[in-house]
Design a protein around this nucleic acid. Sequence first.
DNA 1: TAAATAAAGGACAAAATTATCTTTTATTTT
DNA 2: AAAATAAAAGATAATTTTGTCCTTTATTTA
Lengths: 144, 144
Amino acid sequence: MFSKACEYGIRATVQIALQSEKGLRIGLKEISNAIDSPEPFTAKILQQLAKNDIIISSKGPTGGYEMSSNQLSTIMLSDIVKTLDCDLIYTGCGLGLATCDAKNPCVLHFQFDDIREQLKKMLENTSIQQLARSRESGDTLLRL
Amino acid sequence: MFSKACEYGIRATVQIALQSEKGLRIGLKEISNAIDSPEPFTAKILQQLAKNDIIISSKGPTGGYEMSSNQLSTIMLSDIVKTLDCDLIYTGCGLGLATCDAKNPCVLHFQFDDIREQLKKMLENTSIQQLARSRESGDTLLRL
DNA sequence: TAAATAAAGGACAAAATTATCTTTTATTTT
DNA sequence: AAAATAAAAGATAATTTTGTCCTTTATTTA
Ligand code: FES
Ligand code: FES
């Protein structure tokens, strides 16, 4: 469904959010450890997320990654997916045709579009903070 | 969403169904032409579909691919996706964790599972024949 | 200001997916 | 039976995605 980059990106961002809610920064090593991801690959992903103002990075000692309270309250899953997966899910044809267009639909268009709309809604309505908090409260061992 | 192999597989199968409804076989070259796919890659995919009894292949002159009337009436999109994409959509964790398990869910599990169930239903309720016929009637330029 | 720390950036490598090419096997027609 | 046809099978190649390594840049602390 999502690329590896996107999967790691979501998991990493939730981890960052989790620390930011406590007012703490978290470094690359800790993130990779926490979410069990390859460290240098994760670094690349975090760079992209920082460039797109989804997280904030700081260099030097005490440096690391964090999210502003504004980011915490506004960043949605869809922002991460769009950044890392080039919103292909949003615009591409389910059968791989060059364009997806309701005026010139493929045989699967209407079925596919229905699912895509629901996925879209889910991604746009799920905030990182929400995921972090569900982890935090952790009634049911919500993993990362 | 789907792999290229799966996209070509669906498009090719619909094309075969379209001919089979007219009682005709169709060869690899014609299929690749019709759906605009790389010929040898398409051949590999058709081999897999034939092995899994989704289509029937015959060698020699007048050979080619076809679907039995039984296949035409029973094969669903889900059969093709399972064959070519190893039902990852069906069983894998949306965040890429090793397992997806409601008893030990990831932070996205319940949101993701909801979408997945709907996708599953769509794939299991959409037959190849249905797609072929919508193409055939073609009120709205339904592409392949 | 120097040393230490941590991310950024760029080059490189491995793996997986997609795509191609060649030879073999099965079937039909002559 | 021989020739022609078309898919199967297997080897090979290109591309994309994933993953690693090394050097540079920015920041903090001593
Ligand atoms: S045209 Fe294929 S999904 Fe829209
Ligand atoms: S555990 Fe992640 S989607 Fe089910």
